[in-house]
Amino acid sequence: MSVIMNKNSFKYLAVAIAFVMLTFQLFTSSVNAADIPIELRTVPLNETTNIVLTQKDISKGKKLFSNACATCHLGGATFTNPNVNLAPDSLAGAYPVRNNVLGLVDFMKKPTTYDGVTEIYDVHPSLKSTDIFPAMRGLTDNDLKLIAGYILYEPKVKGIGWGGGKIYY
């Protein structure tokens, strides 16, 4: 008899919990994630024009970055060359400059050394080397823009931690 009461008690408890949760859902306002301030979402498109990323752009850019770039650039560092990272100062010092969306997209299509002299598509993932780097397969120009936007957005959120390497992770 006590086993039956325990089963019935459990059923009543489960129904009561479900009722409380349903009531809570119906009578409380939905809480959305806080909007990311526009200042953080504004990134340079080129040397003269800025664009404002949507929260969806940032989210998709992060996912694409994680899938295609984070193996070597986790947290904006460059594990194969710690002297060059994805921090804004490093990107601005490259030639051609890579501190804007179009500059980064150009690099992801045709990567060159930091001074811009030598093509490095055989050692750096790009659309030119999808046979060697399959993570780049299927990425569209829009995907590259989202990745670039994410790269330019992250240092605004993480500060010096973005590109700082393993001391921050």
Rank of each mutant, 00 (worst) to 15 (best):
S9W: 06
F10W: 07
K11V: 13
V15I: 15
V15Q: 02
A18P: 12
A18K: 03
F24R: 01
Q25W: 00
L26T: 06
F27P: 03
T28I: 00
V31S: 05
N32A: 07
A33S: 14
A33I: 06
A34Y: 04
A34R: 11
D35T: 14
T42Y: 05
E47K: 15
N50M: 08
V52Q: 14
V52G: 10
L53I: 12
L53R: 12
K56F: 02
I58D: 06
S59T: 15
S59F: 11
K60Q: 14
N67G: 14
N67Y: 09
A68R: 09
C69K: 15
A70G: 15
C72I: 14
L74D: 11
A77H: 11
V84L: 06
A87H: 04
P88D: 01
D89V: 06
A92P: 06
G93T: 01
Y95M: 07
V101W: 01
V101D: 02
M108V: 08
K109N: 15
K110A: 03
Y114V: 07
Y114R: 08
V117M: 01
H124N: 05
S126M: 02
L127T: 15
D131T: 12
A135D: 11
A135H: 06
R137D: 05
G138C: 08
G138M: 02
L139F: 03
D143C: 04
L144C: 04
L146Q: 13
I151A: 05
Y153V: 05
V157R: 14
G165W: 10
K166L: 12
Y168L: 12
